[in-house]
């Protein structure tokens, strides 16, 4: 897993069937990457639903969040609509898990991304990373602490 200080590998992934997100287009902004195993986990403890409520805290720190899993764009779209998510979910679908592997957070055995968080600073360097046990939703306190640290600089 990539650690603090490493350059965040660039990527280009679909957020919708006709929209691609390039990490390098977000230089000058803080970026949060939340890798997670799969769409459609139970509602109340769902990590993406939690981040959805926190967008205003993230924007306070000039940060954009992306969820990333190996689910396809169509699956992401249905999931976003069902959960009313207001941030992009990226499909690490083809070649499967390529970006997750680049960040060192791909679980080869189950063929899914691990549950991992990265905060990337405005210059594209990893400022903080965290690998959570797959069954545990890591919350957002670590993300906010890392963003706060960045704005202090």
């Amino acid at each position: 897993m990539l650690e603090k200080g490493a350059t965040a590998p660039d990527f280009e992934l679909n957020a919708t069937p006709d929209q691609k997100i390039k990490l390098k287009d977000f230089k000058g902004k803080n970026v949060i990457l939340a890798f997670y195993p799969a769409d459609w986990s139970p509602v109340c403890s769902d990590q993406m639903a939690l981040y959805n409520e926190m967008l205003k805290y993230f924007s306070k720190y000039d940060a954009q969040i992306f969820g990333i899993s190996v689910d396809s764009v169509w699956c992401h779209l249905a999931f976003e609509q069902d959960r009313k998510l207001h941030f992009p979910l990226l499909a690490d679908f083809e070649p499967k898990g390529k970006v997750s592997k680049a960040y060192g957070v791909y679980d080869e055995e189950v063929g899914e991304s691990k549950r991992a968080l990265f905060v990337i600073d405005k210059e594209g360097k990893i400022a903080w990373s965290y690998l959570s046990p797959t069954a545990v939703n890591p919350g957002a306190d670590g993300i906010l602490d890392a963003l706060e640290e960045l704005t202090k600089k």
């Binding site: 403890s45 990590q47 545990v136 919350g139």
Partner: peptide, 13 residues
């Protein structure tokens, strides 16, 4: 209260 939860690591209810 919500912000306190966020800062305290609440990950679900």
């Amino acid at each position: 209260d919500f912000e306190s939860g966020v800062r305290s690591g609440v990950n679900g209810t």
